[in-house]
Computed example of a mutant assay.
Amino acid sequence: MSGRVVVVGGGVIGLSVAYHLAEAGVGTVLLERGTLGSGASRATADVLRAYFAGDPVSSALAVRSLDAYRDFATRPGARLPMRQVGYLVLFTDADQVAAFEADLPAQRAVGVDVELIDARRARRLNPLIGGDLPLLAAAWSPQAYVSDTAAIVDGYAQGARMAGVRIRTGCPALAVHDGRVETPGGTITADAVVCAAGAWSAPLARSAGVDLPLPEPVTQELLVTDPLEALPELPITLDAASRLLVRLRGDRLLIGMGYPDNDRAAWRAGVAAQLAVTYPSLSGVRLHTAVTGARDASPDRTAFIGHRPGPPAFLYAAGFSGHGLCNAPAAGELVRDLYLGREPWLDTATLAVTREGVG
């Protein structure tokens, strides 16, 4: 079997890459080891936001991606729910405020709408914040939405198929050698291979001679509360110190706080304890697992996007560290442009594996 480009990975990143390549007239085959969206794309909070503190590169990807999501009904042609709720980051330490202020010019330069607000306004935006929490200030960005990851995956998959992408699920890529992708069903040859395999990216890239400095995959777990009465409208809210993230999900709260270690019971107890500190009215509420999934996290939490020129070429889009949903449309555009030799809209040296501090 042969094709111009083989994309490995059927999550939101790989599907975006395949869609953008096929839309540009490139013959594309996509391989997915399981079902579409069954990796990191299965364990998201369904959040689309623009502001990534201390990471203006990820913010630039997210701002461009938000524009694409707003146009999703046109390209790729699927209705996409987007409920604007805003994003609030709570600062309880003066160093957090100073870091925000130092980062602010770079964030605004890439199009992020974000400002520093006082504790009183933050509590108006999220009235669940405890009165005893030593809240100094908060970052507020209205550019944040609750969406539907499954709808994004399905929309890109339908758009990709209509553009001519051949999608093969249940077909893991075992290795890549000189444009040949080894699968359990045989070898697929291509002019280029794109590695967008999420948590399985590092060994696959290594077989192609590219070192993606990704640590061992981590398991993301999101929790959900029992139904709660009379919940107010809330922004997506992150406590900067503990990394406790909450958002409304119907009559419940969806909750994340970093990555569980081997002692999941202890991690869940820690989440419950922090929830009671930040939001005392929720003390004692029962928590349940909402979703889990394997996630690829880069050392500096910024994605790797780049290429080794061919023929055959090898391209990669991995290490999104939970930002993949927010970055997917822009990532697909960058991989397409790298393959076609176009001038990309962003300097991809800031995303390459050779960038400073990650080798």
Rank of each mutant, 00 (worst) to 15 (best):
A317T: 05
D93F: 07
D95A: 15
A24V: 14
Q158I: 15
G14L: 09
T169A: 12
G359E: 02
P344V: 13
R243T: 09
P227V: 06
T187H: 13
W345F: 15
R49E: 00
D103V: 08
R249K: 14
A269N: 09
C171A: 15
S281D: 03
A50N: 01
R79V: 14
R268N: 03
W345G: 08
S283D: 03
A352N: 07
L245F: 03
A139R: 10
A330G: 09
G209K: 12
L15Y: 04
L212D: 00
A62Q: 03
Q96T: 11
G164K: 11
S59N: 04
G9Y: 09
N126M: 05
L214Y: 01
D148T: 06
G3I: 11
R268M: 06
Y145V: 02
L275W: 13
P232C: 10
P76A: 06
R42L: 14
A144V: 07
A50R: 01
R75P: 00
H177M: 14
R268V: 15
Q158A: 15
R161Y: 12
A78F: 04
W200T: 04
G319R: 13
E101G: 08
R264Y: 02
G198R: 08
A208Y: 02
G3V: 15
E333K: 13
I167R: 09
G357P: 01
G270I: 08
V181T: 14
R64W: 06
D154A: 15
F320K: 01
G332A: 10
A240M: 15
L275Q: 02
E233Q: 09
R295G: 03
A199I: 06
L31A: 01
D211S: 14
A163I: 06
Q220L: 08
R70Q: 11
L66A: 02
A43S: 11
R120Y: 06
P311N: 10
G9A: 05
S242P: 11
A122M: 10
I117D: 01
L254C: 05
A273C: 06
L48K: 05
G9W: 08
L90G: 00
G25D: 02
W345A: 13
V110Q: 00
V17L: 03
A294R: 15
A24E: 00
V12N: 06
I152M: 13
